[in-house]
Design a protein around this nucleic acid. Structure first.
Length: 616
RNA sequence: GCCCUCGUAGCUCAAUGGACAGAGCGCCAGCCUUCUAAGCUGUUGGUUGUGGGUUCGAAUCCCGCCGAGGGCGCCA
């Protein structure tokens, strides 16, 4: 967490090696991986290997030579202008050379105080990175309208939101963008069946209405799908339906007032549900892009790409407008292949719209980095889009990044909206709340009804969010309700519970110490238990975890960290008395440590879009 | 045919070039008159799919093979 000791040492080591004629390789510092003590460590393997390669080092095996170097450096550091046997570096208790590593242990009381005071001084900003001077746009939450929000959309949204929170906290100016698919054949299909059979009906309730549209979609698909052994009448009817659907799409495209009004009304039902779910998830979008709004600009782009010689117009031959990406890039081997950017009937495609949208992101929002949180199955399409942007001459194309994630399927197979085989987010949410309430009524019988409901939502959502974020991006998830809503072990509630326990101690301490006022300046000048050391160690790692998670675009890093931190707290909580500590100074110090742990857990959970309840 | 992911404990997953490959679940055994037991402690469990290569050092990088999933010009 504090690099000053490390930097001081690095300077010393460089000076020593320069004096001894040792060509030092780059020093990489890592926390000492042993529990119970803290400090930093670096190794001399690379330096020894470089020597061996250059024919120096006396032909000794690399590990042996690395150990010699470590010992030599240790000796030189200690003998330098050593004040006493504790070493010549401020804040360092001892230095050892082991197996080619130089381990530097920090003085416990000074380091503990530094960490705890720093956390308490920074509060909600503890771990925040310095401004990076770059603007990042994260595009996520792109469900189709006229459907309902399912658990696959949820993974996308929680992943995007956690990522946005991470990049923002790490110091990037972050813009959150949603991109609902509000037009396309699927949308028209729902409008068609609604207009034909259900006109005027409208279920009450935001979620009920959204889910109803999904039911209509399933029904419409069944009506429009060719069946085996159809009678001639059935075939004729199906073909008529199909013709009606096409006609409706054509009218939409032509701006027919009736169809447009129908579209606006039903679309709004879906968007209302989407906004409600985002509210439940505490997601606040900065920008809303709609597929329908980039349709016209996309058509203009096609003409521009033809004019620039990037796209080939095969319409005169009855074909489409295509881009031979590999050929235009001058690639010999096939990589991006060829794709269509305008159908032969003159309508645009997903790829075309993404090109138009990218242009807006670059020119209107001036983004430096453009992150697309999209299912990994669309990887090829996005690579094609980025390649075309490159051909088009956008330097920002290099900063486009597809954050692909594995898709969510069900134990019985892939989800299918058309067949109605989906697990809806709202259903999982309701089930989560039900399950938490069942546990809560038993564990916290004296909670008010209102509070119980609120806490149940926080815990239920915490369980669900964590189960999604604790798996790395590229991994597929088979959704299992019991696993996703588990409250035991490596879960959201486990971390939330650590927060609650910390809060509980602090609450009680305030009641008792009201007379004596606030916490005194903390001193850790007593022998810390290994649990306290481990907890402080974990707290001090938070800023580095933020940095890593944001740099690698991996919420998993933060999820794993949050668990480790909570785990350290639970062990501490179990083994180390705080309010019951005999010595008052120790009690004060531990209370400050508990407050610092609570703050760090809060900050970590916030980055995962998980609430930190005060009680549970 | 070409391309992309992945293969780690019985199961679900971590560890992406460094010290004995770690958690959770499950199994087994303990711990609530003590700050919330949604917890803690201990035990069990591994030739990292396989064969080679690079490296002082490989689960991690490279190549082959086997196996699983996904993608490849008018769906999104």
């Amino acid at each position: 967490m504090f690099n000053d000791i490390q930097q001081q040492l690095e300077e010393k080591i460089k000076a020593i090696c320069a004096a001894e004629g040792i060509e030092l390789a780059e020093l990489k510092w890592v926390p000492i991986p042993f529990a119970g003590e803290w400090g930093v460590s670096t190794s001399f393997f690379q330096t020894a290997a470089n020597e061996a390669r250059a024919g120096r080092g006396g032909g000794k095996p690399v590990p042996q030579r690395a150990q010699e170097l470590a010992e030599q450096v240790k000796g030189a550091v200690l003998s330098g202008q050593s004040k006493d046997q504790m070493g010549s570096v401020e804040g360092v208790s001892r230095i050892e050379a082991v197996k080619g590593y130089l381990n530097v242990y920090f003085e416990t009381s000074a380091y503990a105080r530094r960490v705890v005071e720093s956390v308490l001084a920074s509060g909600v900003d503890f771990g925040r990175g310095a401004p990076k001077g770059e603007r990042v746009m994260v595009e996520y939450a792109q469900p189709n309208t006229h459907h309902s929000f399912h658990i696959g959309h949820y993974r996308n949204t929680i992943l995007g939101e956690a990522l946005a929170r991470l990049t923002e906290f790490a110091g990037f100016e972050t813009i959150r963008a949603s991109y609902p698919g509000d037009i396309g054949l699927g949308v028209i299909t729902v409008m068609w069946i609604y207009d034909k059979f259900y006109k005027g009906q409208e279920p009450q309730g935001v979620h009920e209405r959204g889910q109803w549209l999904l039911k209509l979609y399933v029904e419409a698909t069944a009506l429009l799908e060719k069946k085996e052994n159809e009678t001639p009448e059935e075939t004729a009817r199906r073909e008529q339906y199909e013709a009606e659907r096409r006609e409706m799409y054509r009218k939409w495209d032509a701006g027919d007032p009736y169809v447009r009004e129908l579209w606006r009304t039903t679309r709004e039902w879906s968007l209302e549900e989407l906004r409600e779910i985002l509210r439940m998830m505490d997601v606040k979008m900065d920008v809303w892009f709609y597929e329908s709004e980039v349709d016209e600009p996309a058509k203009a782009i096609v003409e521009e790409l033809i004019a620039r010689g990037i796209a080939d117009d095969e319409r005169p031959q009855g074909g489409a407008v295509i881009v031979k990406i590999d050929e235009k890039l001058g690639l010999k081997k096939e990589k991006y292949r060829t794709n269509v950017i305008l159908r032969s009937d003159g309508t645009t495609l997903y790829l075309t719209k993404d090109l138009a949208l990218a242009k807006v992101k670059f020119e209107k929002y001036h983004v430096d980095r453009s992150i697309y949180v999209v299912d990994v199955r669309q990887s090829m399409h996005l690579q094609q889009a980025f390649a075309i942007l490159r051909l088009w001459g956008f330097p920002q194309a290099e900063k486009c990044y597809h954050l692909g994630y594995g898709f969510v399927s069900l134990p019985e197979g892939a989800m299918s909206a058309r067949r109605g085989r989906v697990v809806l987010f709202k259903d999982v949410f309701d089930e989560a709340v039900r399950r938490v309430l069942a546990v809560e009524s038993e564990k916290s019988p004296d909670m008010s009804e209102e509070q119980r409901r609120k806490v149940a939502e926080q815990i239920g959502m915490g369980a669900l969010a964590y189960s999604m974020l604790a798996v790395d991006n590229n991994r597929d998830i088979v959704f299992d309700m019991d696993a996703a809503l588990s409250f035991d072990g490596r879960t959201g509630p486990y971390i939330q519970n650590a927060h609650v326990r910390a809060n509980s101690i602090l609450k009680k301490s305030k009641v008792e110490s009201r007379k004596s006022g606030d916490l005194r300046p903390v001193t850790f000048d007593y022998e810390l238990t290994k649990h306290e050391i481990e907890l402080i160690e974990q707290i001090s790692r938070f800023p580095a975890a933020v940095e890593q998670a944001a740099n690698e675009y991996r919420p998993l890093v933060m999820a794993a960290y949050a668990y480790d931190l909570a785990n350290a707290f639970h062990s501490f909580y179990h083994a180390v008395p705080v309010l019951q500590a005999d010595d008052e100074k120790i009690r004060e110090a531990r209370l400050a440590l508990v407050a610092a742990a609570k703050q760090t857990i809060t900050n970590a959970l916030r980055l995962l879009d998980i609430q930190a309840p005060e009680v549970m």
